[in-house]
Amino acid sequence: MNSKQMFLDKLRAGLKGLPHSVVEDILAEYTAHFDEGRAAGRSESEIATALGDPSRLAREVRAETGMRRWEDERSLGNALGAIVGVLGLAALDLLVVLPVLLTVGSIDLAFFIAGACICLAGSIMLPFALISLLPGFDGDWLQGVLISLGMASGGASIVAVCALFTIGVINLLIRYGRAHYRLITQANPS
């Protein structure tokens, strides 16, 4: 098997899971690189070496595709795709990025759950406050209503801040991935 076909096969394997049209466009682009190199008198092995490691190229394409999807449509699936793409691109930095990401994500999740529980508790207390069944309020229904509304709105606020924080962290990861991608591209010009 020739160097061109081995390169394209490795690249195709690394791009598995991406939309078929994206994979075909990328393979056509790299096939054109080989055709131009052959027209310039270079061998296929020289062209493959100049293009770099197809596995690394596939990781870069996957990261960029995930980031574009996240920017186009902000959804949980696209956020996970962007995170996985950035972590795949930053494989060498995995020992630094992953523990920090897991710690920040765990704290964010804990605050999210706490906020949801506080909001739920306030929502459950509201009907009881309205009929003065909450103990300790001595029939002062207004105080019970205000406390339950305060808990519900405070919990909802915590959940909203956690959601905004999560979006911010995802955007930082995308910026990190792009900066990392630019550094790799500058260090290994194709």
Rank of each mutant, 00 (worst) to 15 (best):
N2E: 11
N2D: 13
Q5V: 12
M6R: 15
F7E: 01
R12A: 14
A13V: 01
G14R: 01
G14C: 04
K16G: 07
L18K: 03
L18V: 04
H20C: 02
S21I: 12
V23C: 03
E24K: 13
E24S: 12
I26W: 09
I26R: 14
A28T: 15
E29L: 11
H33K: 15
D35V: 10
E36F: 06
R38E: 13
A39F: 05
A40W: 09
I47L: 13
T49I: 11
A50N: 09
E64H: 10
T65F: 15
T65K: 07
T65E: 14
G66Y: 02
M67D: 04
R68Q: 14
R68S: 12
D72I: 06
R74F: 03
S75M: 10
L76E: 13
G77V: 05
N78F: 03
A79T: 03
A79H: 02
A79R: 03
A79D: 01
G81K: 01
G81W: 07
A82C: 08
G85W: 00
L87S: 08
L87V: 09
G88R: 04
A90I: 05
A91Y: 14
A91R: 12
A91V: 10
L92A: 10
L92V: 08
D93V: 02
P99D: 03
V100N: 05
V100H: 04
V104G: 00
D108P: 00
D108N: 15
D108F: 05
A110H: 02
F111D: 08
F111T: 04
A114M: 07
G115N: 03
G115M: 03
A116N: 07
C117K: 14
I118M: 13
L126R: 11
A129K: 04
I131T: 14
S132R: 13
L134H: 02
P135N: 01
G136D: 14
G136A: 14
G136L: 13
F137M: 11
Q143F: 14
V145K: 07
L146C: 02
S148T: 05
L149E: 13
G150M: 05
M151R: 00
M151N: 01
A152L: 03
A152T: 13
G155I: 08
G155E: 11
G155W: 06
A156P: 01
A156R: 01
S157V: 00
V161H: 02
V161C: 03
A163C: 00
L164A: 14
T166P: 00
T166I: 00
I167E: 10
I170K: 08
N171Y: 00
N171M: 00
L173F: 04
I174H: 04
R175K: 08
Y176T: 02
G177K: 12
R178Q: 06
R178C: 00
A179E: 07
H180P: 02
R182M: 07
L183S: 06
L183W: 11
L183T: 06
T185Q: 14
N188W: 08
N188T: 11
N188P: 00
S190V: 05
